[in-house]
Design a protein around this nucleic acid. Structure first.
Lengths: 354, 354
DNA sequence: CGAGGCCATGTCAGCGTTGTCATGGCAGGT
DNA sequence: ACCTGCCATGACAACGCTGACATGGCCTCG
């Protein structure tokens, strides 16, 4: 079993890569070969009807022979620096959630004939302005951003220049921008209400990190639902971390080993759910569990979750971007996507009586 | 619980979006304000040392005041249509595997100062040339592609123009291109050998689809290892589908319900593993299982897998792209990344004796 | 039969930037 | 004082394309 990547030099049947022999054909080359002016070739490629079918065919034949492909860069420049790309900037490369968002954005943009320029900040807040700036200098038509930096005021100038800015999953700070978010608060409240309906009062909340917008919203939903059920102070059952070295398992362990352990647990996100699952596996006590974010094996494992559609989150953002590109005016918009409590068993374990 | 996305018009504290008031500042605007020529401003932004520190500062101050950002599109055009973007085209939006690949590519490209233009074909082979063409017309410096179309000969012209083309996960058909793939064949053979070492002879192979390059390689590895163990004809235990409507579960069911059921199963990919898991859950018989592709809960569930690193697959492709951009020459390269058999229990169930 | 109009096509300039070459000022050597 | 050479800066063109406007042939109609 090989341990290191193996590299083969493919036998030299075919020539190796080399410096290009010919250079890229331009409109003028095609025009010369077809015996027309560059402008007429241009007309063919911009779909103008004012070209004789016969001429058009001669031009297309010449273009094919020269392997001509219109130079989008030049076209964009000529047309006032308007490109057909939209930038997407995200932080955490490793979270599958964001990939689904990215896929949704790309899907919608493709419908509008736009392509997506994608860059990530590698989760370093300081690099957000740098990365965003690099994309903006490519004159993208819109910017879709999952904010990570402390604030987005550095984008104010660009906004005034008319570039639509849409944030996803979290609202921007110190910047006027359209936003698409999940119904974090009500989603979590639904989960907790479902537990209280089953008699639970001592409900743990596990989250690390917990200082992000989404998670503090979910925490708020949790507290609110507990309040409604008559539990005024939930802090003994909250395990909020902001240190990546604290594992969700250890948070759950600390909860269950406390003097007054909870009978149910809700988790702030996918990662916390995984941790809770791992820890609960090692225990006998039947503890109810509802996770935030759905996951592939949840159904098989019978785990109840607050589900939502990350791809739709991206699609909504993509649509918003396209609409803004069309009509710049109008009020700021905030779209909140619903969540759905999926009951699969783990969340329906009743509270022990007595 | 809301059922439909809710949309809020944010209260009008801040102004609404509107047509841009001012237009984007150019080199000339900055030059005028700083009292120099455009060329001098250009020199500042292209890092030329031939500018007096005092002049430089005056220019930077002016640029800041005008919120100037160099126009990459124009710069690229001027410099012979060389952009600083690399295209990545993939098919299946829904497979997390490819997102990890994408992340790896993006990571490496960022190191070289390139950004990634990402598009997907939505898994329609016919749209591959269209999507690729759209990206190429943006004059990307290299193309990284997960091939889906029947052949890639349509890229021959572009290759001759000197655009590096790198395929990932699968080799190109009818095109000379660098390639990064997994050690599919040996990886699967390792898995099967581990099973035969535990006494298994009747080993099922489940895969849908099965006609793709990666899966036929894995099938070949499976057959080879069985051959070595003295099983000449494995076809009774192969369940190969190419119809998306056939679920992996049903393939596993058909295997286990056959007159001579296997004592172990290997799966062709992640999706098949999930299906096998679901089906095996419903059964009593202890059937050994080794999956191809690792997954998040595999460790918790004790599932043995042939693991590999999709992010590294992307990184290798990204590095290859950067190297080709630097030096066009040299032989075609094929990089094969190793897999690793991770034993977690499910694959180590011994064959029933007798 | 000439005026007017329509249509296919052409000419030219310029999008914002930078490579090439030019200019003019100043320091140092003789 | 004069020449040489260096350095900071500038003038100009061009990257490939398309919008605005021009041209010239042909058809129609009074």
């Amino acid at each position: 079993m090989p341990r290191a990547p193996s590299e083969t030099h493919v036998p030299d049947l075919t020539p190796t890569w080399r410096i290009p022999i010919q250079s890229r054909a331009t409109l003028h080359d095609v025009a010369r070969l077809a015996g027309v002016s560059a402008k007429t070739v241009s007309r063919v490629y911009s779909g103008s009807p004012r070209v004789l079918p016969e001429t058009r065919e001669r031009i297309l034949a010449a273009a094919k022979r020269l392997r001509f492909r219109p130079n989008t860069v030049a076209r964009n420049l000529r047309q006032g620096g308007k490109t057909d790309t939209v930038a997407f900037v995200m932080g955490d490369i490793h979270n599958p959630f964001y990939f689904h968002v990215a896929a949704g954005i790309e899907q919608e943009l493709a419908k509008g004939g736009f392509t997506m320029l994608w860059a990530s900040t590698g989760d370093a807040p300081d690099s957000e302005p740098v990365v965003v700036d690099a994309l903006l200098s490519q004159l993208v038509r819109a910017l879709v951003l999952i904010p990570i930096a402390g604030d987005q005021s550095y984008l104010e100038g660009e906004r005034q220049l008319g570039t639509p800015i849409i944030t996803v999953d979290r609202p921007a700070t110190d910047l006027v921008a359209d936003t698409v978010v999940l119904a974090n608060r009500s989603g979590m409240a639904d989960a907790v209400r479902s537990l209280t309906a089953n008699g639970h009062r001592k409900i743990g909340f596990v989250s690390n990190p917990s200082e992000m917008y989404t998670l503090s919203e979910r925490l708020a939903g949790y507290r609110q639902a507990l309040m409604e059920a008559g539990v005024a102070d939930s802090t003994p059952w909250e395990r909020l971390g902001n240190d990546p070295s604290i594992t969700p398992e250890s948070q759950v362990r600390s909860l269950l080993d406390s003097s007054d352990p909870p009978t149910a647990i809700v988790t702030g996100n996918n990662r916390a759910t995984m941790g809770a699952l791992r820890e609960l596996r090692t225990r006998e006590d039947p503890v109810a569990l509802i996770g935030f974010d759905d996951f592939e094996l949840a159904e098989m494992l019978g785990i109840s979750v607050v589900a939502h559609d990350p791809v739709e989150l991206g699609r909504a953002a993509g649509r918003l971007a396209l609409e803004r590109i069309e009509h710049h005016g109008g009020p700021i918009r905030r779209i909140e996507l619903p969540t759905r409590l999926v009951k699969r068993g783990s969340g329906e374990i009743p509270a022990p009586t007595g």
